[in-house]
Nucleic acid binder design. Structure first.
Lengths: 353, 353
DNA sequence: CTGAAAGCGCTTACAG
DNA sequence: CTGAAAGCGCTTACAG
């Protein structure tokens, strides 16, 4: 099997096989009306010469690129290496989910969607006709760019994005289940906790806001106190969680106004809470129980009780349905909420009533 | 500024601006022979209509794609989440290095280069004319696919790959400095260590083999014992390092044939060594000193003394020089060895002579 | 079953 | 300074 070291065109293959370019193209595209003998002759020439059609030609002639743009919007203030590593593992999961469906990812990491420069860069990629759809991770709910792209007819898949009013087929999203806060409060309630503090996430993210509402409505349901001093916005990172918790507990401790439990908006923030409590010499779980959300493995003592999600499932759902939208599959779900589950470890304990 | 929601072509822009497609193209490509008035008229129409040239057209007409293929070859037996996270952070660094130079990354994660299916998949991407070069991470030294692609004229950038005989301009690589083993042994020697064990990496990787040679030649230089029982191949992961070290020290302990120090081929393996020693109740560093290579942050007690590299530098060097090759920059270095430095922490101690 | 032709959206050498 | 034309590599409706 000889391999050519210059790119052949379909004309040259046609010539070698003694057919027209039309027929070569029919073979490449598996048309049914090519007799077996012809098919074999052509396909052999193609293989012998290691021929693959030039993508630009195919694209101009109307084929799809089987490529998805992947736009990762970085968090501001994300200087935690641990977080970067998590981001990395998400990146890998998204890319692999696409690969399973034979799609390639054009990957693009962007600082923010505030600078017009970045927005234009992304628009350009869509306009260049090189991708069949775009995946976004790290965007605010109702980000204008997303709306614009969807309006212009592009297929967009977004992680953690929910607009209940959206009825278009080309805006796909995947979300966490909406009942997380409720499940965590119920767990703590059943352990006897009646004084529960909350650290909320970035309110512009759908999941953060949803968790907050779910936490609060469940506190209300059980008639538990909802105090301002027991709530704070702590970002979504270990560092921001640390700073928020440190400030919060410094005050609460001096005022002897301590809750018996604190729910963090995610695991990273929970680890920040650990640090803060350690600094103030408050014992987990003896003096305060702590919960997280996410289920990322992380060696920490005591092991964190958390509400865990299967991120493989999350990203697979997003990619699969985005590809279904590209390929016009009917009955394609426009959004999906992925259920998680509580993982009880060592960071919560009972409270005597 | 009105935004169109269907893609315009250069003809339509030409019509709107009252010029020919040629002129539109000259404006897009910044030709010097367009009078300012014409330029402004055309560029305004372009901006108003949010026009970007279709990439396929440009590519067929001979332009570059400003896109690099990124082929990440996964390790077999890589089931360590920590490792996956590291991989992820490398991925991010590579993609960001390209973005800094205004290149996009077509990212592709591949299980191995043994299956012909995977090799064909990669070949295809090169043949499709959609990338200007390819970056490979995770390949064996002298991998045949790399040779073939280079022979066929593609520009290839590889991490941890060195062929001193290569003279072609289109094979670019970045490597760790070659003197790492020597530096580590010298450090231990100066602490008084005379009995030093080694856990080598996967010999098909250039860096692993180079480290091994560097370790051994330095042991020889100081006339230190090189025993078979004090050497083993331990892969490059925590798990494989753990298994290897466990087996090694189980024997050595029972034979009272203990070294005073052990050098791991990288940090992940060193962490595996930690686990193994802990299981055998051997204290670090009191009973044995341990060293790593890499410099990844990881909370471990005692903190690991390691030979650290700046991965930002590593990947930036690779990407920058690969792009220079695409753009025909002369005097472009074909390979670069990145220097690291010893970071002394708590895992090594003095030995009385 | 199969070829000739049109068309996809660009760029650039050519001619004026 | 600028337009008409050729050409890049494909696919597919059309005609036979």
């Amino acid at each position: 099997m000889k391999k050519s070291n210059k790119k052949l065109t379909s004309s040259q293959i046609a010539q070698l096989a003694g057919v027209s370019r039309s027929t070569v193209s029919r073979v490449i595209n598996n048309y049914s009306n090519v007799p077996e003998a012809t098919y074999n002759r052509v396909i052999n020439i193609i293989k012998e010469n290691n021929y693959y059609p030039h993508l630009s030609g195919q694209l101009l002639a109307g084929k799809k690129s089987k490529t998805i743009g992947f736009f990762w919007v970085k968090e501001k203030n994300c200087n935690s290496i641990a977080e970067d590593q998590l981001s990395g593992s998400y990146l890998v999961q998204v890319i692999e989910a696409a690969a399973r469906a034979n799609y390639l990812m054009l990957t693009c990491i962007v600082e923010n969607l505030v600078d017009k420069k970045n927005v234009d860069y992304i628009s350009k990629i869509f306009m260049q006709g090189r991708i069949d759809a775009g995946i976004f991770i790290g965007v605010n709910n109702n980000e204008p760019l997303i709306n614009e792209l969807v309006t212009n007819g592009h297929i967009i898949g977004v992680f953690d994005y929910y607009n209940p009013k959206s009825t278009v087929y080309n805006l796909i999203s995947v979300n966490y289940e909406q009942d997380v806060g409720n499940k965590i409060i119920e767990y703590l309630y059943n352990l006897g906790h009646r004084k529960i503090a909350l650290i909320h996430g970035n309110p512009s993210r759908y999941s953060s806001e949803n968790r907050k509402q779910s936490f609060l409505s469940t506190l209300q349901k059980y008639n538990l106190p909802i105090k301002n001093e027991w709530q704070a916005i702590g970002g979504i990172y270990e560092q921001t969680g640390y700073e928020t918790a440190k400030e919060m507990f410094r005050k609460l401790k001096s005022q002897s106004n301590m809750p018996t439990a604190i729910c963090a908006t995610n695991d990273a923030v929970a680890f920040g809470v650990y640090q803060a409590l350690q600094g103030l010499d408050i014992k987990i779980p003896q003096q305060i129980s702590v919960t997280g959300i996410d289920g990322h493995s992380h060696n920490v003592t005591p092991a964190l009780t958390t509400y865990a999600f299967d991120y493989y499932k999350v990203f697979n759902s997003l990619i699969t349905r985005t590809i279904a939208a590209i390929e016009n599959k009917s009955q394609n779900l426009t959004t999906e909420f992925i259920n998680g589950g509580l993982i009880v470890r060592d960071s919560c304990c009972c409270v005597d009533l």
